[in-house]
């Protein structure tokens, strides 16, 4: 009886303020989509950091023939230069930073190149001479890559020192900024959502003043009087959250998994499963919004 009665009251309220209900749904939808986008960007950033920082290795590219770098004026890096670099890499001074040093000769580089691009026609004309020998250095602490990079940049026989993070870091920076912007927009939209839900509940309470007045008079409990209003807000917000989860899912499915993954393939992208991990968070935020709005409004408009 009680449940049925409360449910019918909720249905009545939702229908009576249909346009307000729809606007609450839309505002929570948009705001939570921003929250979700910010969250997904952070997940992606974390995943990229995990992927790239784990296997981070500084690569010292040795001079090939005909390089235009000033340090390569002597042409192909000589065995002597290579030996000097190797000794320094294995010296005590660098011992705390370097975990492992691996030398890749021109022939080895050529072999792995051949293997990687076996199917490409353009790769067939490349010879071993055009390959670069390199030192691959695995680091104890990836954060310390600068020490090694600075030490070997500009040395004779070294064409360049590269850290893969030099590529990823600007990308992560952009994504971090992006997620900050999304979070900022989300904050504004969430504020709008709270205000709108508050207004909706207030309108709903006003339009049912007669009913609530009688309820109070005949001794209905506070919870019983307020529950329909609270649930109205919560239901609208939950629908908004569900829509935003659906929106994010389609976004990830078609924008990231189908399109981005095809066009920019060197990054390991998040999949739709990431959407499911943040879905509960969005739901909790939605219900929290509704709860805050209800408490603020109802304590003022339907008190005993």
């Amino acid at each position: 009886m009680r449940l049925q009665f409360i449910l019918s009251e909720i249905g009545l309220g939702l229908r009576r303020n249909l346009s307000m209900t729809v606007s609450v749904i839309l505002v929570t939808f948009v705001s939570l989509t921003f929250v979700g986008a910010a969250g997904l960007l952070q997940v992606q950033i974390g995943q990229m950091k995990d992927e790239w920082y784990d296997k981070v290795e500084v690569t010292i590219y040795l001079c090939p023939d005909g390089s235009e770098q000033p340090t390569c004026a002597g042409g192909l890096a000589s065995d002597e230069q290579i030996e000097t670099l190797r000794t320094e890499l294995e010296s005590d001074a660098l011992e705390p930073y370097v975990e492992q040093v691996y030398f890749e000769s021109q022939e080895q580089a050529f072999a792995s190149f051949q293997e990687r691009f076996a199917d490409e026609a353009w790769a067939q004309g490349v010879t071993a001479d055009q390959m670069q020998a390199s030192f691959r250095i695995a680091l104890d602490d990836p954060e310390q890559y600068q020490v090694v990079a600075e030490m070997f940049t500009g040395r004779q026989g070294v064409e360049m020192v590269r850290d893969p993070r030099a590529v990823v870091e600007p990308l992560i920076l952009v994504m971090n900024r992006g997620s900050l912007v999304a979070a900022g927009l989300a904050a504004v939209m969430l504020l709008a959502a709270v205000l709108l839900i508050t207004t909706t509940i207030r309108l709903s309470a006003m339009s049912r003043r007669r009913e609530t007045g009688i309820m109070r008079l005949v001794g209905a409990s506070n919870l019983f009087i307020q529950l329909p209003f609270m649930l109205e807000g919560a239901i609208a917000a939950t629908i908004g959250a569900a829509l935003s989860v659906a929106g994010l899912w389609f976004g990830v499915r078609y924008l990231v998994e189908d399109w981005l993954a095809d066009s920019v393939s060197f990054i390991d992208y998040i999949g739709t499963e990431a959407v499911w991990t943040i879905a509960p968070v969005l739901l909790v935020i939605a219900i929290g919004l509704a709860a805050i709005s209800s408490v603020v409004t109802l304590s003022r408009y339907t008190k005993v």
């Binding site: 009886m1 009680r2 009665f5 309820m215 005949v218």
Partner: peptide, 11 residues
């Protein structure tokens, strides 16, 4: 009936 419904009386 409203007066009884809102104080949770059975049907």
């Amino acid at each position: 009936a409203f007066a009884l419904q809102v104080i949770g009386k059975p049907k």
